[in-house]
Design a protein around this nucleic acid. Structure first.
Lengths: 228, 228
DNA sequence: CGAGCGATTGAAAAGACTCAACCACCGTGG
DNA sequence: CCACGGTGGTTGAGTCTTTTCAATCGCTCG
């Protein structure tokens, strides 16, 4: 965490709009600004780990982070992929609990850290930010309920389609860039099964793959696959 | 909703301790008291339905309620079983969003309704309650992440064991009383599969079944089944 | 007492997982 | 610059799990 930090300013942060910090006025932003610390993280570095106590929250300025839970036998279940503008790690802090998930960078990242005390006191004082957090929690709760439904009721093929659509949203114009194992751990299946299904979708012309990278070609058909 | 209401008072409500209302002082409780309306709901009545706008929150005084999401083709996925002392339906209200889940009573219930405006203004004014809500949201988020992991990585047999343990907690000393279909919709499997697996667990002596009712006999072994 | 819904069983088919082997790309060091 | 080793990706075959569909049973409510 301590290596190589380059401070960006919240006021001029290009990611700020995406996040709820976008809802803050200049005052609120500069409050956060004065307390945060930016750092550069290489691929595969941990932001935090399941079972430890939170010391603050992370705001992603650039790069992507996987949020996952390790099940029995060390198998990871990816719950979410966070990207630029996302605030990460506030759940455990607000619950005054240990982290129930882990967070690791998927690529080189610029990430700002806001210490617990600063964040909590800003939240306490700033109703706008507070409501933003409450809404974010609520929104995520609904998303997860949907995710549960998908995982519980759909076939692996359908789930893969769902996940590809989610990832398309996250990676925007870029091709999806995840290891097959990570992808399998998101879909909740064996790596081999995932590979076979990817091949099918490629042959059907819905996606294209270049070694590790995946591009969604026909989102509409993917939606159809995800539902039936 | 309008039939047969018998007002209970929050101050003397036996369920209040279980919920976050328990954290309130007398002042806070009587504030809620003056705004709420209690009613008696028969089995299978809806509190709210996916897609509609919330008008307030529900506090369960007595009885059990299933919270579920309908997937494609009308198949329900049960997300949670709420019981006495639980507050239900605040997610959508806080997100200023439509309900993303539905809630239906599983048995005859006494349920209090607190209108939106009252609830929001109490939350706004009362930091203790507000923090309670934030914590509750955070706690549920972590629980759901765990649930996702279970659904995605475990076999149906393991999932059934997990769900039976959850239900044992909810039903306390009582035997679990759910239709096979509801149970299947919680575990995320076909009713027939569920029945076969229940039979197995019964033959192995981990549970007992009396027609519809299920008693957990050996929770420790059930834990073992849930993990392997 | 009969209708109907919920529960149960059987058999066949589809889906997914495991294990084992093989391939391909990448970075390192000689 | 190339050989080597290693990790991540891919394929095949066999097995087990789960689903589906069809049929039967049995309780409960009117």
């Amino acid at each position: 965490m301590e290596n190589n930090f380059r401070n960006t300013h919240c006021l001029s942060c290009s990611s700020a709009n995406a996040a709820f910090f976008g809802k803050l006025n200049e005052d609120g932003l500069s409050q956060i600004d004065s307390h945060k610390k930016c750092s550069f993280l290489r691929k595969k570095q941990a932001l935090f780990t399941e079972g430890t106590y939170p010391r603050g929250v992370f705001c992603i300025n650039e790069g992507k982070v996987k949020i996952y839970k390790s099940g029995e036998e060390g198998k990871e279940q990816i719950i979410q992929i966070a990207t630029a503008g996302d605030l990460v790690g506030f759940r455990a802090m607000l619950a005054e609990d240990v982290y129930k998930v882990s967070a690791v960078t998927l690529e080189d990242c610029n990430i700002c850290f806001i210490p617990k005390e600063a964040f909590l006191s800003i939240i306490d004082a700033n109703a706008v930010l507070r409501n933003g957090i409450i809404k974010e929690l609520s929104k995520e709760l609904a998303q997860q309920a949907e995710f549960i439904t998908n995982m519980a009721q759909k076939s692996v093929r359908q789930r893969l389609a769902v996940i590809l659509l989610i990832l398309k949203d996250i990676y925007q114009e870029e091709p999806i860039n995840l290891s097959r194992e990570d992808l399998a751990n998101f879909v909740g299946t064996a790596t081999e099964t995932l590979i076979r299904l990817l091949k099918d979708l490629k042959e059907e012309g819905l996606i294209d793959t270049q070694t590790r990278k995946i591009s969604v070609i026909d989102p509409k058909k993917l939606v159809r696959v995800s539902q039936l």
